[in-house]
Structure formats: structure tokens, C-alpha cells
Nucleic acid binder design. Structure first.
Lengths: 334, 334
DNA sequence: AATTTAATTGTTATCGCTAACGGTTGCGCA
DNA sequence: TGCGCAACCGTTAGCGATAACAATTAAATT
């Protein structure tokens, strides 16, 4: 009870060999009911916690799934995680999260760290990686799933939506409502490739109708309500006759809406607003803001299913690429 | 390049012993510049990723800090994490997050899993654990820090605030503003011990002035803006003459505020609102909502510092308990 | 030149657990 | 009685790295 218990201690106290104790505690077969009970009893009584470092080294298997996301503050990845967890729930696998901070070099470091633990699978947000990261992922002897985005060349497996298309679709919806003087406000712009793709798709979509952006703000920091509010205030000050703003995230569009509330502007009469992600935060607002559902939870679920599938089949899984269809909801702000 | 590289492969290719290769790659001293360069070059060229499972078993040290929190959706723990990360940044330690879902049994399982990896430290939210968890934590041969809450008996180290006091303080502030018909809305109530303590402190605080709660809602699900809005609507329908509502979280008070905006109620004239946590989401609102800063980031930082300190000193750290002082901000909603 | 001393590199022995395989026991059935 | 087959349990040999110590070389000192 005092010093750290090892398997051999449990075995000795139970009067069996280490191997039998190991089998008993792991729920492996070939152990009689009675000895299993005795071993379990002793282990519990002495607070034995198996050393998975040793166990994993020996069994050459680690029941962890590495999940690498850019941020945990952005409200978007916790939902992906929760999709992953729910699928992994009734399997021996557990998700482990790493955060890359929207930095491609940080991502490399995090992924190297993750892979050094030899996980049973790896799920990473995005298709853009450093060359070294790409090599690591290709050589990793576990299934690797790139998620969120399908605009690009997946290494092998991939689950996501087309952000280019999401941008285009929102553009066509906005144009269909008759808006003409349109602005865009985005955050993390150089680094957030998906936001960038939505922007590109949006501009392209406007272009097909001969419309060009009236104003544009690319903010380097992370999304937040207050940032959305400030940038909206600035943009409307610059362009008083703007009639619609598309934001890189709902967090920002909520900020824009807050600005309108504070200034007594009517949405969408004075200015229309649209965001992206369909975050939960939109739900309680007095006005339903337009957004595109990014299928975050489902992406997590599908990715986890691929990992599970890869574990079952001994040989390599054929490449899987699932493109989900995001749903636009116009709400009352367009 | 094709098959998985081991240290011995790197060593062979570099024409040195495994030990030298190991030293070179770990940046250990006693390796000549030239051989170090050669080894590093070969490792990089072949995409060698060290096996930390083996390394950790051998060195009997794992550079991970386990962090167990109830949830990642609640907007509150990511900030604690970020405090932890920032302190761990320039140390070899890396945080690993586990989620207990506000369930004491789930927490036990997650902590057992975490400890089975023999981390260098463990940070866990809350002071309430199952008996088995308590035993595990006492026996763990790494520093354990309980965070967020100081109302109770810490196992050893502890960093947090008094939620009882936070509740009392908010009560006295509210009473000082002259409110008398007061309601409380809380979520995760049976399981979220800290919300419960704030509630208890709040009721006690009101009691010292002879005031009792007019209405009370204990919602089982997680906090969200929309839930806050709905419960507020219901409560105000039941108690039209309520003049103030205290919420278990800012997420909920924002929902209450949204209800007021939607219904054209004036805050605080028609009803005053107060939340807890000082979440970032409060920042962009048209009206500053009253709240108490829970010192989340600082709690994370202090906890991480204790872990680092514990690593340095070979012998056991004397128990440390840091009680931070939450700051109330009245904003414009009281 | 002989001998320290420091700088490098190699050898050996684990780390704690589990895969693989080898025994032992007991029972059914011919 | 004796063979075959489960059911159970033990022995041996690593898993891939590193700590600790031994050995070698090179540089420095007397």
C-alpha cells in the first residue's frame, strides 16, 4: 500500500505467476473464475495501477487516438472532439488532444510528439502541413485521417466539407437576396486555411455575378465576439452604405450583431450578417443569424469510425474520402 | 524509409552505437559536434520518430502532465488549460487533457487511465472524488494539484478560489443595490460542486439580511446561452415581479440577457442579472453583465508552477494551498 | 616521454509488462 | 486403461530505449 505496487507484487500476494496476474487483470481468457477474482481483489485492495508504458511496449499496441486541432478556444473543435469521443466510447481507444495553435511548425512538433507515443490512429485538422509532417504521417504505421476540409490532396483518409464551396454557396445566397455592397471580416487569416478557402470561394461566387467586395478586414488574432464587434464598427464607419457582411466565423458575426444592437441598427434592414459554423452560441440570440453548418460533430464521428475500421482489418485500409454537405441556414439576418 | 526505423537503424547508418545515437538525438552532452550532426541528419532524412514508450520505460520518466477537467464545452476550462500550457511551454513537460464529464465515476476511470501512463504531474479540477480516486491520488508518485476550488480538504496541493465566498459576495453586492426579489438559475446542479457551493454561499449571503430566494431553477444539462434564455423566460413568467437573477455561469446570464433583449425588457431596470466566470463572451455585449472573475488562467499557471517545482526538488514538496481572490465586476446589469 | 585529465564512445543490464509457447491437470470417451 | 482435448497456469524471451559504468581516444600537463 505504501510503495508503488508492481504486477509482480500483486502476483506474489495472490500466489500466482506474473503472467496469470496479468491475464486476470486484463480480462484475458484462460484464467479460472476464482483466481481472477483473487487477483482482482488484491489489486484493488492495494490500489495497483498497471503501468501502461511497460504494457504497451510489450504488447506493441497503444490504445490511444491522437487528435490534433488548431485551438480549443474557438468553440469549433470541442464539438469535433465530442463526435470522436462518442464513437470511441465503446472501444478500448481513447482520444488524446494536441493543440497546434494554427501554426504549421507547432503542428509538426505536436504531431511528432503524438506519433512518438505510437498511437492506434491520428486525426488531424486540415490538409496543409509542413513537408516533414507529411513524411511523418505517410510513414506512421497507424491510420491517419485529415478532417474538416476536403479542398486539396489528402494523404490518405479524409473527412470534411468543401470550404471553397461553402464560401461560393453563401455568396450566391447573399446575391440572391439582392445584396450588392458586401464586406468580409475574417480572423487568423493567413494561418486558417479553411477560413481562407471560404473567403476565396466567397469572392469567386460574388465574381460570377460581377460583384466585388466593397471592404475587407483580415484580423490576425483569434475570433471573439468583441473582435467581431469592433471590426464591424470600423468597417461600417469606413463604408456606411455596406448592406451585408460575411464573417469567417459565427463568433464574429455575433459580435457584429452586438454592434448593431448597441447602435440601434436593424438587421438585416440596415445591414445583413452571415457567419459560419453554426455554433451553439447562435441559438439563444433574439435574431437567428445566417450561417453554414460545418458538420463538426459528424466529421468527428466519421473520422473515428475510420480509425476503428483500420484497427480491425489487419491490412491497410483503402483510402477513404468523405465529403459532407454543409447546410446553409438563412435565419433572419439575410 | 519504408519500414519503421528504430534507434538501432539510425545508429547503424550513422556508424555509431545505439547509445551514442540516443544521446545525440536527445541533445545529451558528451557527443561530439560532428557525430551529433551526422546522427541528426540521418534521423531526419529517414523520418525517424523516437519511441517514447520505450524511452519512458527505460528512463522511468514521462514528460506529461495529466489535466483532468469536467468538460471542454463550458468555455471555462480551455482558459485554465491555456494557463497551464503557457507555464509548461518552456519546460519539457506537455499537458494531456482528460475529460470527466462532471461524473465522479468517469473521473475515477479517467484518472486511473492517466496515472497508468505515469505522468510527471496531475492537475484535477475539484476537491470531490470517489474514495478509490482519493486513494489513487494519494499513492501516485507525482505531484497532484487540485484546482478551481478551495472549499474542502485538499489531498495535498490546491489552487483555486472559494466558491462559497464568491456566492456570498455576490449576494451582498446584490443586496447592496437594493434588490429583494431574487432568483437563482443553475445548471449541472447536482454534479457541479462549485456551482453548488456558489449557490449555497449565495443563499447564505441573502439569509444574513433576512432575504430568501423567490425562485430557483436547477437544470441538469450543460450551460448554454439558449438554456439560459429559456429558463429565464420561464422563471420570469412564474415570477413576474422578480427583480434580480443570479446565474451559475455567464453563459446562462448571457442567455437571460438575450431574453430581455428579445422581450424588450430593460436591464437592470426590469430585471438585474449576474453571472459567474467572467467569460470572454461577455466582452462584446451591448451591456456589461455583472460577473465574478474566476481567475481561471491564473489558477492554471499556479498549478503548473507547482508541478514544475515538484519536479525539481527530489523530495516531496510541502503541501501548498493557494487561495486566489476573485474580483466581482458589477458591470451595468446590477 | 610518461602520466593525468577530459572528451567521447561503447557495453551491459534493466525498465514492467506481455506474446508465444510449454507444461500440467482433469475429464470424457473409446 | 489410455488417449485426446480443454482448461488453466508457468517459463522464457523480448519490446526499444536509457542509466550506469567501462573503455577508448585525444589533449594537456609534468
Amino acid at each position: 500500500m505504501t510503495k508503488k505496487m508492481l504486477l509482480k507484487d500483486v502476483a506474489r500476494l495472490a500466489g500466482v505467476s506474473e503472467m496469470t496476474a496479468s491475464r486476470a487483470l486484463r480480462g484475458a481468457p484462460d484464467v479460472s473464475k476464482s483466481t481472477r477474482a483473487k487477483v482482482e481483489e488484491i489489486a484493488r485492495a492495494h490500489g495497483y495501477v498497471p503501468n501502461r508504458i511497460a504494457g504497451s511496449l510489450s504488447s506493441q499496441s497503444v490504445n490511444l487516438v491522437a487528435v490534433v486541432v488548431p485551438s480549443l478556444n474557438s468553440f469549433v473543435f470541442p464539438e469535433v472532439l465530442s463526435g470522436i469521443s462518442s464513437v470511441l466510447k465503446d472501444s478500448p481507444l481513447k482520444p488524446v488532444v494536441g493543440v497546434s495553435g494554427y501554426e504549421i511548425d507547432e503542428e509538426e512538433e505536436v504531431i511528432r510528439e503524438m506519433l512518438s507515443w505510437r498511437p492506434s490512429g491520428l486525426i488531424v485538422a486540415g490538409l496543409e502541413h509542413s513537408e516533414a509532417t507529411r513524411r511523418m504521417l505517410l510513414q506512421a504505421d497507424c491510420p491517419v485521417v485529415e478532417v474538416m476540409d476536403v479542398d486539396g490532396t489528402p494523404l490518405r483518409h479524409c473527412v470534411g466539407i468543401s470550404h471553397l464551396q461553402a464560401g461560393r454557396d453563401m455568396a450566391s445566397q447573399i446575391l440572391a437576396q439582392g445584396y450588392q455592397r458586401i464586406g468580409f471580416i475574417g480572423t487568423k487569416m493567413p494561418q486558417d486555411f479553411r477560413a481562407r478557402k471560404r473567403f476565396d470561394g466567397f469572392v469567386e461566387g460574388l465574381g460570377t455575378e460581377g460583384v466585388t467586395l466593397v471592404d475587407l478586414e483580415h484580423y490576425a488574432g483569434e475570433s471573439s465576439v468583441v473582435t467581431g464587434r469592433q471590426l464591424t464598427a470600423q468597417m461600417l464607419a469606413r463604408q456606411p452604405d455596406l448592406d451585408c457582411i460575411y464573417y469567417s466565423s459565427d463568433v464574429m458575426s455575433v459580435g457584429g450583431y452586438m454592434h448593431c444592437l448597441a447602435e440601434g441598427l436593424s438587421v438585416p434592414k440596415d445591414v445583413a450578417l452571415a457567419g459560419f459554423n453554426n455554433l451553439q452560441i447562435l441559438e439563444g440570440l433574439p435574431l437567428q443569424l445566417a450561417t453554414t453548418d460545418a458538420c463538426r460533430r459528424e466529421i468527428g464521428e466519421r473520422a473515428a469510425e475510420i480509425i476503428l475500421k483500420g484497427r480491425e482489418s489487419s491490412d491497410d485500409l483503402p483510402p477513404i474520402c468523405e465529403t459532407l454537405s454543409p447546410r446553409i441556414s438563412l435565419g433572419q439576418s439575410l
